[in-house]
């Protein structure tokens, strides 16, 4: 019962966060269970029912809650199918870029040697070129596929983690508890893994949640521009692109995936902000949190 009251208090105090969690859980659930819970087959076409507005009754019973697309497919079912790709692309690319970038920043910031110099110049170099441009170029050459998109997204964003983790590392390595560990005879590996990484985890996790939204939007842009997910697969960005032609006659085709992107990224951001506020008090690095927000704005 104690847990229930705690949950109730959390819901009451953090209404926005609760709502965000609910939205996110709904999105994840619909991605995982499309074929079980979708009201219609997302691939079933019916040209008679082209571009029907929301709440149109279906001839076979039921209602097309969010209308239908130009091929007469149920928009809600398409949205759920699209969330699969949108979510998996963004999560996978965040994990890859986060692991790679953090490792680079960790090593660069700890040793501050030639590796640091090379990597940070590389980061500067990449920061000076718009990442979407690089992504477009690479995808144009390699051809769009799920794996390529994930890799390209990861490659365009790794430096964010590298910079943040290096910056945190520069502050952390001067902490006395690192010197204490060294005087106890701890190896560099032990110091990094046992002492520094745990202090890095919270800010990096916050950054990752923010990046999740960035990745989702970038994937949407790529798909919108035609170099992302290809039909008949679907992602929210692609749905947006496909609906653009019918903007005047069937505006819900753009509004539905657009609102989905908006709500999901907003939810992620709200949860990230809440998490950041919660962990800031136990952080070993003062000012580390500010660093992250400024990094993301770049």
């Amino acid at each position: 019962m104690k847990i229930l009251t705690r949950i109730a208090r959390f819901v009451w105090n953090q209404k926005l966060v609760t709502l965000s969690i609910i939205i996110l859980v709904a999105v994840v659930a619909s991605a995982l269970l499309v074929h079980l819970i979708a009201p219609f087959d997302p691939y079933a076409q019916d040209l008679v029912l082209r571009n029907k507005p929301p709440l149109t009754p279906a001839p076979g019973g039921g209602i097309h809650l969010l209308g239908t697309d130009p091929l007469g497919r149920d928009e809600l079912a398409r949205l759920m199918l699209g969330s699969q790709i949108s979510l998996s692309v963004s999560v996978a690319s965040v994990v890859i870029s986060g692991l790679f970038g953090t490792t680079v920043g960790l090593i660069a910031g700890y040793y501050r040697n030639w590796f640091d110099d090379i990597m940070m110049r590389l980061v500067d170099l990449q920061m000076s070129v718009p990442s979407l441009l690089i992504a477009l170029l690479v995808l144009y050459v390699l051809g769009p596929s799920f794996v390529n998109i994930v890799l390209v997204l990861a490659v365009t964003r790794w430096m964010v983690y590298a910079r943040v983790s290096r910056g945190l590392m520069l502050a952390l390595r001067e902490e006395l508890f690192v010197e204490a560990a060294r005087s106890l005879g701890a190896s560099n590996f032990r110091i990094i893994v046992r002492h520094l990484l745990p202090n890095l985890a919270a800010p990096i996790l916050v950054l990752a949640t923010l990046e999740l939204a960035v990745m989702m939007l970038t994937e949407a842009s790529l798909s919108f521009l035609g170099l992302g997910i290809q039909p008949p697969e679907s992602s929210w960005g692609l749905m947006l692109a496909e609906g653009r032609e019918y903007l005047t006659s069937a505006p819900w085709l753009v509004a539905v995936p657009g609102i989905a992107i908006l709500l999901t990224t907003l939810s992620v951001n709200i949860i990230a902000t809440w998490f950041r506020a919660r962990t800031a008090s136990t952080s070993a690095v003062r000012g580390g949190e500010e660093k992250i927000t400024s990094e993301v704005e770049i």
Binding site: L176, H195, N199, T282, A284
Partner: peptide, 8 residues
């Protein structure tokens, strides 16, 4: 203060 790791 700074000589003890806050996470441990």
């Amino acid at each position: 203060y700074s000589s003890l790791n806050p996470r441990m």
